[in-house]
């Protein structure tokens, strides 16, 4: 295992989550969604958080993004405590997060504008990332005029344009059809290969997790804790053909068993 002390003065995208606990106040009392969760993501690593729906995956990402504050515990990025949102962590949401009042170009340039980059440079950087995700020619469309896959590509380009240390992705392909999802996964892998950013990718899809990740963190049902970590030692570059490979299938069987145990647990709990 690699050294787990905080890395200092070195912006590389090293995430350390220590005893992260999140409780929400509800009418019927406090609900614990995350319970003393600890994990590390190494610089340049692609980690998938895999868990059943409602287990607290989005809550983990929202805490990493700085949208919600931990009730207890800390999150460090390169040794620095995280407590507010910032452009060093780019979030790609599941859906409906593009600004519908802006064209593709203005969505992608939004972060640059906030960083007070203007004129020719903003236009050029924006275009570079629109091209990167294959949306050349769609610059002046509004989000409502795009397909789901195209919207997610804009969502990706929008955060990549700010050159973040970390990509946070919350089931970004969850609402796409199977074909589009495969294309998006391959696009993401290609982009990741070029940029080598740290990625924390949330999904409930076992195939997706294995295809993308270096390491899968399997979460328990609520409150979310770590059930098991699976290293995915499949060679890269990977493509969707991999799903029939022997190693892929054996990881999948194992992961499915873990997920099954958790969803059975939830199912029985909900039945009373």
């Amino acid at each position: 295992m690699v050294d787990s002390k905080p890395v200092t003065n070195n912006a590389v995208g090293h995430i350390q989550v220590n005893s992260l606990t999140v409780r929400f106040q509800r009418a019927e009392g406090p609900v614990e969604v995350l319970d003393a969760l600890s994990f590390t993501v190494l610089p340049g690593e692609f980690v998938c958080l895999l868990g059943t729906s409602g287990c607290g995956k989005s809550t983990i990402l929202n805490a990493l993004a700085g949208f919600i504050s931990p009730t207890e515990g800390t999150i460090h990025l390169d040794g620095r405590v995280l407590n507010s949102p910032g452009p060093d962590r780019g979030m790609v949401f599941q859906k409906h997060a593009l600004f519908p009042w802006m064209t593709v170009r203005r969505n992608v340039e939004f972060g640059l504008k906030m960083a007070r980059i203007s004129g020719e440079l903003r236009r050029r950087v924006g275009q570079q990332f629109i091209d990167l995700v294959g949306l050349t020619g769609f610059e002046n469309r509004y989000p409502a005029e795009l397909s789901g896959g195209m919207e997610q590509r804009v969502g990706l380009a929008r955060v990549l344009a700010l050159d973040p240390l970390v990509l946070l992705m919350d089931e970004p392909f969850g609402s796409l059809d199977a074909q589009t999802r495969l294309l998006m996964q391959e696009l993401l892998l290609r982009v990741w290969d070029e940029t080598k950013k740290t990625v924390v990718f949330v999904t409930h899809d076992v195939d997706e997790a294995i295809l993308l990740a270096d390491r899968i963190i399997v979460l328990t049902a609520r409150p979310a804790g770590i059930k098991e970590q699976i290293d995915v030692c499949l060679p890269r570059p990977r493509s969707s053909d991999l799903v029939t490979a022997h190693e892929f299938v054996s990881i999948k069987q194992h992961a499915l068993k873990l997920i099954r145990e958790e969803s059975d647990f939830v199912f029985r709990a909900e039945r009373g």
């Binding site: 949401f93 997060a97 600004f99 939004f110 700010l162």
Partner: peptide, 24 residues
């Protein structure tokens, strides 16, 4: 999500009105 997205893309509180809240 609009507010969160804007904040994580670097928008400060004083930008939110014109950039997000009013158009939304």
């Amino acid at each position: 999500t609009y507010v969160w997205a804007a904040r994580s893309l670097g928008a400060k509180r004083q930008h939110l009105f014109a950039e997000v809240l009013l158009p939304a």
